[in-house]
Design a binder for these strands. Structure first.
Lengths: 335, 335
DNA sequence: GTGAAAGCGCTAACAA
DNA sequence: TTGTTAGCGCTTTCAC
């Protein structure tokens, strides 16, 4: 049940059938109809392997994620997927599976096998070997999230984002603000957390405000991590307590809010909390945040990489937008 | 830079190189070493398309999800992925993208192209046409989540799960319990919500308890939906308020808890809340739940389908385990 | 508008 | 242990 069968049944040649199936304009309309009908009747299923071998194009792009179960990755993946589907491309998912997931093997064994025409890397920091390996495959690559040396990337300007948050907090009158960020649990993607922290510290310094060491905490970029950080922050008694907490992700911010309430503090009266992301849960809970749109970033990245596959030049991409969304978890500090 | 180059450089034949690359035991160890070295030097990258064409095996399996951004799907996807990676298989993600995502095209255009050797469907209810289409591809299929006519499936027994929740609630003395479930937002996957609701109603009936119509709500299987359902439930004043709420997912349960607190009710004193899933957030918040392990289900499904690809018979799978986790959101009703 | 033939890069008998 | 010879199912010149 290949193209040949259809050729035999219709009395046409393989080449004509091939052209007809792809709807090429050099084929008579009547022929196209006939071929399509017969193909349907026969239950013809094209072989992407054969087509790929012949053309050198797989019509598939790979998406590499450090781990899957993070809000940002899921959203970005959805965006990439939507755009690929529009273009008729398949998506092959390469999940590095965290620190325990032996990246090396994953890299070598599958990503390079010409199974895909391009790669979208989700906030990945590659080491030299990995870069070199990927270079072998010679296909277009782009990263979403933190910047990566030598690769195009789409994402927000993390320093700017941190600045927006600090502006908001300081504009309300806060001077004692803590930071909850830290390494991603997966042990990857170092760029983003650092950029946000540096952006925070710098923005504070820009206003003549310094940040206490004990107020820079690791929230592991997760809800539970945020709770832990909040517990640490609020257990110390009112004297050494910040009046505001800036979290590098909404999930952590949600955790901090919970910890605050548990500690008997009211938000934002006793402590203000702001996050980054635009997580759905935050909207419901009334979390103030600097929202970004990872889905749109995914779509942008997919479009860019697809264009490159089609031979377009790889120009630089503009920073993705992010904007302050003021809700109920931030307010002026207590007088 | 194909297998041929290596053959030329080493002075061996293509076949020997091919065998050496795959480490076949009929090849001299020294030859294997040599071939591998030369392959590395040349930066050889195998072509999965060519291998697939020749063998008829793509070493890839497709995973079909109704939408990606749901806790259960993400977790299950992770499980499938882990097992595939172990087996050296790639994962091709087919996201139907909700009701707006024109399933048809997605089905026809890519899933069937022999790009994958098997399919894992995440709680999908297929109509006849879709079933027929997929049959064409003739590869092993399995569904995770609700049962689907004519297909093997792995998942919890939803009726039993609902029974566990009802047992717990009634064991505490509750008689007035509401249900929050409803259609998945995606408009797919009808089986699971219905089974859970029916299981709930039946279990209640089994104890001589009936369920008010106004206490069966749609929470859209999301956090926000849970909040809405909770608002509706708790806005009516204490008279018509249930003493417990059974939610078909933890995300909805979390929303109901939030709504209860907002309405000035304390949990579990004024109202008990129980969910299904074992969501991480629930753990932190102290949500009582009937926990399941979608990741394990994903692994099981992947293993089963891989075995079938390798020619194993497709025996029936046992129901996945689920167990009650009592935490802080359930307690006896007020006297 | 259609056909013939070559070939994409690999694997798999069958020989040697 | 290695080499020879056919394909796998498509696309694509180049003719007609």
């Amino acid at each position: 049940m290949g193209i040949q069968e259809i050729a035999t049944v219709t009395g046409l040649s393989k080449s004509t059938v091939s052209r007809a199936l792809r709807g090429m304009s050099t084929v008579a309309d009547s022929t196209i109809d006939q071929v399509r009908r017969v193909a349907d009747e026969l239950g013809y299923v094209p072989s992407s392997a054969a087509a790929g071998l012949a053309t050198g194009r797989q019509r598939a792009v790979g998406v590499v994620v450090p781990v899957i179960d993070r809000w940002f990755y899921v959203k970005a993946l959805g965006g990439v997927d939507a755009e690929l589907r529009r273009a008729g491309y398949d998506l092959v998912l390469y999940n590095l599976g965290g620190p325990g997931g032996d990246r090396d093997r994953a890299f070598r064994r599958s990503m390079l096998r010409h199974r895909v025409d391009a790669l979208v890397l989700l906030s990945l920091v590659l080491d030299e070997t990995e870069r070199a390996e990927l270079e072998l495959a010679r296909h277009p690559m782009i990263v979403i999230g933190g910047p990566a040396a030598g690769l195009r990337n789409v994402g927000v300007d993390d320093v700017v984002v941190a600045g927006i948050a600090v502006d908001h907090l300081c504009g309300l009158g806060h001077r004692d603000v803590a930071y909850v960020g830290g390494q991603d649990e997966a042990g990857m993607n170092v760029a983003v957390p650092w950029l946000r922290r540096d952006g925070f510290v710098d923005a504070m310094a820009g206003r003549g405000l310094s940040v206490r060491d004990e107020w820079v905490l690791d929230g592991r970029f997760s809800f539970a991590g945020g709770v832990d950080a909040g517990d640490a922050l609020f257990a110390r008694g009112a004297v050494a307590r910040p009046t505001a907490v800036f979290c590098a992700s909404d999930e952590m911010a949600l955790g901090v809010v919970l910890a605050a309430r548990r500690a008997g503090l009211s938000v934002p009266e006793d402590v203000s909390v702001i996050g980054i992301d635009g997580h759905e849960y935050g909207e419901v809970v009334g979390l103030t945040t600097v929202a970004q749109d990872p889905e749109a970033q995914g779509r942008t990245a997919a479009r860019a990489v697809l264009a490159e596959v089609d031979g377009a030049a790889a120009g630089p991409l503009p920073a993705a937008p992010a904007h302050l969304v003021v809700r109920a978890t931030t307010g002026p500090p207590r007088a």
